[in-house]
């Protein structure tokens, strides 16, 4: 139980609650789960819909969670979490967490309705979206959170298209628009920020949402030892941002003095290697518009 905020590795238990899974080497998603579970501890109910993380951890009889856990229908993470919480409450259980780990597709596309319903009810659940920017478990197809210019198996870059042609859906602000008690973005490239946000969510009396960028070596096409670096660079070049929504206010947690090279970040990944200068300009334009809005409207 996280009663004080976990802000760095010293606060973190040596116990493991998620281990022995079959994720690829260099998997950012499994790192996001492992760290979150270390904050939440043994009295945690976990629900995971169809995605890489359930695929690599729930294979009977080799289950990778030492806590209570279950697979939820793909579209229904929010509803299953609500059900667990309502059942536990009705049965008088005390001192526990209910957490879900859904992918970007499971959150922004098929699961958005159930997530919206759960936030609307204000059930005391923690919803973590680990964002690897595509449907990875089914073989790297485009999702609503696949960024512009990303080549996936259903948005292949070719002579006519640059890969995905749309920007990422703005899940963080969609969630915030529900007037949720606590929402935050994070990246596994900034683990201390992520740990602090998970432990804030754990203390929240109502629904909380953490959107953590989780680079995927397999789907993005970068060397397996570069995962954390990619998570860090995504923030440093301004394509991702670390922020919180609390008491109706947006707050930026990390303000890069100047952005690191966007081209460097993109060109390290096979999914972006084909991008032209024109594509780079589109991405840069989108980034700058986003940051202008952040500067103008959020507490920075």
């Amino acid at each position: 139980m996280a009663d004080k905020l976990v802000t760095n590795a010293r606060d973190l238990t040596n116990s493991e609650y998620f281990y022995g899974h079959r994720a690829c080497a260099g998997c950012g998603g499994s790192l996001a789960l492992r760290l979150a579970m270390k904050v939440l501890g043994p009295r945690t109910f976990v629900a995971i819909p169809a995605n890489c993380m359930s695929a690599v951890s729930f294979l009977h009889p080799q289950i990778s969670f030492s806590t209570n856990s279950m697979i939820s229908p793909f579209a229904a993470t929010g509803a299953v979490l609500s059900g667990i919480e309502a059942g536990a409450r009705a049965l008088g259980m005390k001192d526990y967490h209910v957490v879900g780990f859904a992918g970007d597709g499971g959150t922004a596309d098929i699961g958005i309705q159930a997530l919206s319903g759960a936030i609307d009810r204000g059930d005391r659940i923690i919803y973590v979206c680990y964002d690897n920017e595509a449907y990875m478990n089914t073989g790297i197809q485009k999702s609503g959170l696949t960024p512009y210019g990303s080549s996936t198996t259903t948005s292949p870059a070719g002579r006519n298209l640059p890969g995905a042609t749309r920007m990422k859906k703005n899940m963080f602000e969609i969630v915030a628009a529900h007037d949720i008690a606590y929402a935050a973005t994070a990246s596994i490239g900034y683990p201390e920020d992520y740990l602090r946000k998970i432990s804030k969510a754990a203390q929240c009396a109502s629904t909380s949402y953490i959107h953590v960028l989780a680079p995927c070596s397999t789907g993005w096409g970068f060397p397996i030892e570069k995962t954390v670096e990619m998570g860090k660079e995504a923030v440093d070049c301004g394509l991702w941002y670390l922020a919180e929504f609390e008491n109706g206010e947006f707050r930026l947690n990390r303000k890069p003095r100047e952005f690191s090279s966007l081209e460097d970040y993109l060109k390290k990944q096979a999914r972006f290697r084909h991008l032209t200068d024109k594509d780079m300009d589109v991405i840069k334009g989108n980034r700058d518009r986003k940051w202008k809005k952040i500067q103008d409207q959020w507490t920075v």
Partner: peptide
């Protein structure tokens, strides 16, 4: 004396019942 969950669809109605049943609640 029960928790009544206002869900946003039948898919969620059954999924929430499943979550509750998974902790041993009558649903």
């Amino acid at each position: 004396k029960a928790e009544y969950l206002h869900v946003e669809s039948e898919h969620s109605a059954m999924s929430a019942a499943m979550g509750a049943a998974a902790v041993g609640a009558r649903t």
